[in-house]
């Protein structure tokens, strides 16, 4: 079982146990923070928060991936080539915008709640994916393309069998950036009315309840690290042909 090697399965196990078992650690937090009346966040279950968080960040990342890769493919085709300069400029400029500010702006434009947060995350998450899709497809050598066409592939076959597989490691790196940013920003989205792992943190910060902050922060950090490690594995697998045998 190659999949069991490395930290990935253990991190996953740790995250599940920490999420489900968090309430059981109440005595521990009681001992750590004797001054607090309620040392355990109990407004929502941590499992529900984790699932809501995953839903928000996951849907946003999925939309960002689908739209981002499609856009990246479009502007690298002859038909979309003239849009490429603009798309690249927007992607580069947009990435300098702090994600928290983008999230905050979504409120005056679209209102409070989960869906404005979702749209803001998806839009922001789009940028690294578009950028990396373009870069990834660009790095396919010209003679590889010429060989693919010259040997009798259609343009679609060349895209599906040559360009996308060769660009995959770079595209996945973009998705990884996007997902990690989305997971972090989704936590802040609890300030615009979405229930996420950020909720105990924000509540704890505003109510000087360090225990709440710690509970949310631990789960959030674990989730981000787990996803990062998972993407690392995926990237290794996708780039397998590069490895010396």
């Amino acid at each position: 079982m190659r999949i069991l090697r490395g930290p990935l399965p253990w991190l996953l196990l740790l995250l599940v146990v920490a999420t489900v078992g968090m309430p059981a650690t109440k005595p521990l937090f009681h001992a750590m923070f004797p001054a607090l009346d309620r040392p355990m966040y109990e407004q929502d279950s941590f499992t529900a928060l984790m699932l809501a968080h995953l839903w928000l960040a996951g849907v946003a990342s999925l939309v960002a991936t689908i739209v981002g890769v499609a856009l990246g493919i479009f502007v690298t085709r002859p038909a979309g080539a003239e849009f490429r300069g603009m798309v690249e400029t927007v992607a580069a400029m947009g990435q300098t915008f702090p994600p928290v500010a983008v999230l905050a702006i979504a409120v005056p434009v679209m209102g409070f709640g989960e869906s404005p947060a979702l749209i803001a995350l998806a839009l922001y998450g789009l940028l690294p994916i578009v950028r990396n899709t373009i870069t990834g497809i660009e790095t396919v050598p010209a003679d590889t393309r010429e060989a693919a066409l010259g040997i009798g592939m259609s343009r679609f076959q060349m895209l599906a069998r040559i360009e996308l597989p060769l660009a995959a490691p770079i595209i996945v790196a973009g998705i990884r950036t996007s997902v990690i940013v989305n997971v972090g920003t989704a936590a802040i989205a609890s300030t615009v009315g979405a229930k996420t792992l950020g909720s105990p943190i924000i509540l704890g910060l505003s109510g000087s309840n360090t225990a709440y902050v710690l509970q949310g922060a631990i789960l959030l950090a674990l989730l981000a690290i787990l996803l990062d490690v998972a993407f690392e594995r995926l990237a290794m697998w996708l780039g397998g042909w590069r490895r010396p045998a």
């Binding site: 050598p141 003679d143 590889t144 010429e146 060989a147 693919a148 010259g150 040997i151 069998r161 040559i162 597989p165 060769l166 042909w241 590069r242």
Partner: peptide, 14 residues
């Protein structure tokens, strides 16, 4: 028609 180019143009991931 078979087609052969200078650099070979082999697909590196295959």
């Amino acid at each position: 028609m078979g087609y052969v180019i200078q650099s070979g143009g082999l697909f590196p991931h295959w």
